[in-house]
């Protein structure tokens, strides 16, 4: 067996990764105030609009998908019966 990579097995490395991630989020929130915006819509000019929109979009996506799953989930054999 070849050597294995295990960097994400160590909780410390995962923690470092998450901290870097959170720092980059903070940097992005601050950077928003220093850029020249050419907003086509009023809401684009709100501070950190895209951050809020991205976050809300993804949470909505997940919760709507969960509701959808109740509606459309079937067993893997659903189409295979009586064939």
């Amino acid at each position: 067996m070849k050597k294995e990579l295990t960097i994400f097995d160590k909780p410390r490395n995962v923690r470092i990764l998450l901290v870097c991630f959170y720092i980059s989020l903070g940097v992005l929130l601050i950077a928003d105030f220093f850029i020249d915006k050419h907003a086509a819509f009023g809401w684009e000019a709100y501070p950190d609009f895209f951050a809020a929109y991205g976050f809300i979009s993804c949470v909505l996506l997940i919760y709507i998908a969960k509701l959808l799953r109740r509606l459309v989930k079937r067993s893997e054999d659903y189409y295979r019966d009586r064939q």
Binding site: F21, S24, L28, I35, E44, D48, F49, F50, A51, C58
Partner: peptide
């Protein structure tokens, strides 16, 4: 910045 915010905060939601 707009695109990075959209993506990274989407990733935050995932996390």
């Amino acid at each position: 910045v707009g695109q990075l915010q959209l993506l990274m905060f989407g990733a935050l939601a995932f996390c």
